[in-house]
Design a protein around this nucleic acid. Sequence first.
DNA 1: CCAATTCTGGACAAAATAATCCAAAACGTA
DNA 2: TACGTTTTGGATTATTTTGTCCAGAATTGG
Lengths: 202, 202
Amino acid sequence: MARPKEFDQEKALRKAISLFSQQGFAATSTDELMRVMDVGRQSMYDTFGDKRALFLRALEMYVTESVQSIIEELEKPGPALSAVRNALVTFAARNDLSNAEGCMGLNAISEFGHRDADVTRITRSAARVQRHALMRVLARAKSQGELSSDADPDSMADFFESTLAGIRMAAKAGKSRRALRNLAAFAGRAYGTTVDREDRRR
Amino acid sequence: MARPKEFDQEKALRKAISLFSQQGFAATSTDELMRVMDVGRQSMYDTFGDKRALFLRALEMYVTESVQSIIEELEKPGPALSAVRNALVTFAARNDLSNAEGCMGLNAISEFGHRDADVTRITRSAARVQRHALMRVLARAKSQGELSSDADPDSMADFFESTLAGIRMAAKAGKSRRALRNLAAFAGRAYGTTVDREDRRR
DNA sequence: CCAATTCTGGACAAAATAATCCAAAACGTA
DNA sequence: TACGTTTTGGATTATTTTGTCCAGAATTGG
């Protein structure tokens, strides 16, 4: 038919994610996006629609992958609580945290709050999926007697999510990778006093 | 001399803080600021310089007050670790968190990262002051034997700050006041297993 | 080699936004 | 009351930024 259909869309999106993560939506100009994505203006508009649509596409891609990688950690075999604690530590060690780029998801929530329906839909949806996996692991922990009876799964889940957010912000604030790891490990303590025993078991 | 010197600067600044907290810097137009602050354009420029200077003034006011109120909690009498845990719970109950307005400090870090020297100076300076108070309380905890010997004050402090950030984000994400409180209480568990005993003591 | 189609890049139009200007009103003080 | 100073608000300008247009180049299939 014709010319081989555009540039590498996924790569371009990743560049956009990087830029949006650093500066947010409003502060990022289309000129800057073009330059970083290495795409002509027309190509950009043809492919993605407009700046806002591009942002939403990028956001969706980002949160989906982000949630995915956390769920993978949560569903690792072994004691359920260990998986939870480990997910925190592993998350703290992620490469993309060390460059202080920031989390596009948090960024979007920061910037838009809940006044943008599309943004809210995307972040909420991803959060729901993650929450689901989280509650499943916690239920498993409970059924296997890892949790004391007074432990409230909802609060534990809220705490988990909040810890992730805290780690992300600490990373953006410039904390060292080691500090992030220690912080995550320390947060794990909240999940019960069985930490030491389980850690030794491995 | 002349006319009675302007409007209520502090009130206007608070309005500006509210708006910036919700939308960030770039997404907030001067028109919107004028309307919300209830100040004429010229007055605004005369009084604050320009949009950026206004933002910095507002940011400084916000983080100073925010840090101040946390330090007050941290320095309350009683067992040091209780003060730390209590600071988290009290923070989670703050009124300004329930309206999902968001934290201007986090917002600023999200939006600017460290590419803006002035913003960085303001947030860093406030963080340093808070950190100082925090380390003092933790040192007191250690000297009074509330901390096990393997506890690392730096990690504990990082965790504390990270928890605050997590609570703020959870609030902005729309979590209920009760959820925030439970989350904060749960985070407190990380500071040692003496929770129950100390709580009962009161 | 030709044709159809898509990409590319620069120029351009339109809108939004930051910041300045200016004249009139408000106010304290003499 | 009258003067000098300051605030106020609208009009205006300049700049930035988003999005479109258009013509030429590139590429695949017949």
